[in-house]
């Protein structure tokens, strides 16, 4: 956390300046114990998600293993077959623990994939618009305007209604919903950057346009983007849950965390809290971990925070 305090002595930093950039990055990242904890949890969550088929006591997507007669068992209760369900079962007799493991897998991949694609798309369009200006900017920003003037839910709703259900379709819908947002944020940041001396300098040096845009301006536009992107991973996961809540998105037999939560939603009031609560908890832990890591990443990566 040393580098974060504006008034801290620069000498401590100087001493380690000789390391490789990656080594320095790791060291600086490790300065926050909270971030390390977040990283540990995130790695744990990812391992669980990847190894779900090995860890889960049941394959919650295999209908032959479910029995509706075992539905809505409370945590710790025994099924008719004598099995004990640690976190109870949902209304279809799906083991909640297994459901959460598998659900994590889907939610994470949906959140991360859609954010990456959207970020890439938004970044490219935003930078291009800001740098080139003129009609390129006009066209891109008008498309962005169209995009942003649709309520995101409505775009996703229409897209999913047309496409049908499935992980890939949800990712497409989420990318379509989010890319414009990045484009606009990048453009706003880049517009300010473009006025700065170093860009002028680069131009004087007759560097190529793409080089100026992607090597020089891009890194300086990143900090606000990282903030937005971390928020958006969480947002993507929760938007996916909302779509499931509205009846579109994941197939009901292969629930994501979001779908598990919304399935349990109907039972919240009747005291069967576990159907909604535990997936909610898993979602919360995952997102908090992502954000702890991302926060520290941003601090470390921000060129202006370390002088």
């Amino acid at each position: 956390m040393l580098g974060l305090r504006p008034t801290s002595q620069p000498s401590a930093k100087m001493a380690t300046y000789v390391q490789t950039p990656f080594g320095r990055f790791c060291r600086e990242f490790a300065e926050s114990r909270l971030a390390l904890l977040g990283l540990a949890v995130l790695v744990g969550v990812m391992v669980v998600a990847l190894a779900a088929p090995l860890l889960a006591p049941q394959n919650p997507y295999d209908l032959a293993q479910l029995d509706v007669l075992d539905g809505k068992l409370a945590p710790g209760e025994q099924s008719m077959g004598g099995k004990t369900y640690l976190l109870g079962t949902d209304d279809q007799g799906r083991d909640m623990l297994s459901g959460i493991f598998y659900g994590l897998r889907i939610s994470l991949s949906v959140g991360v994939m859609s954010t990456l694609f959207a970020l890439g798309l938004g970044l490219a369009f935003g930078m291009v618009a800001a740098y080139f200006g003129g009609w390129v900017d006009t066209i891109i920003m008008r498309i962005v305007d169209i995009q942003l003037s649709f309520p995101s839910i409505l775009i996703a709703l229409i897209l999913l209604a047309v496409f049908g259900q499935g992980v890939d379709k949800v990712i497409i819908a989420l990318v379509a919903v989010q890319w414009a947002y990045y484009a606009r944020t990048v453009r706003a940041a880049a517009l300010v950057e473009r006025q700065k001396e170093y860009v002028e300098a680069a131009k004087v040096l007759a560097l190529s346009k793409p080089r100026i845009v992607f090597r020089h301006m891009l890194p300086n536009c990143l900090p606000p983007l990282i903030v937005v992107a971390t928020v958006q991973v969480a947002h993507a996961i929760s938007l996916e849950a909302t779509l499931s809540f509205l009846g579109l998105g994941m197939p009901i037999t292969e629930p994501s965390l979001g779908l598990l939560i919304s399935n349990g939603f109907t039972y919240l009031m009747s005291g069967k809290y576990w159907i909604s609560f535990y997936p909610g908890l898993a979602l919360l832990i995952t997102i908090v971990a992502i954000n702890l890591v991302a926060d520290q990443l941003r601090d470390v990566l921000n060129p202006r925070l370390k002088k």
Partner: peptide, 15 residues
Amino acid sequence: SIVGFSLPTFWVGLV
């Protein structure tokens, strides 16, 4: 703030 944007709106609403 992390908790705030982690939970889906509809779930928070019901709570």
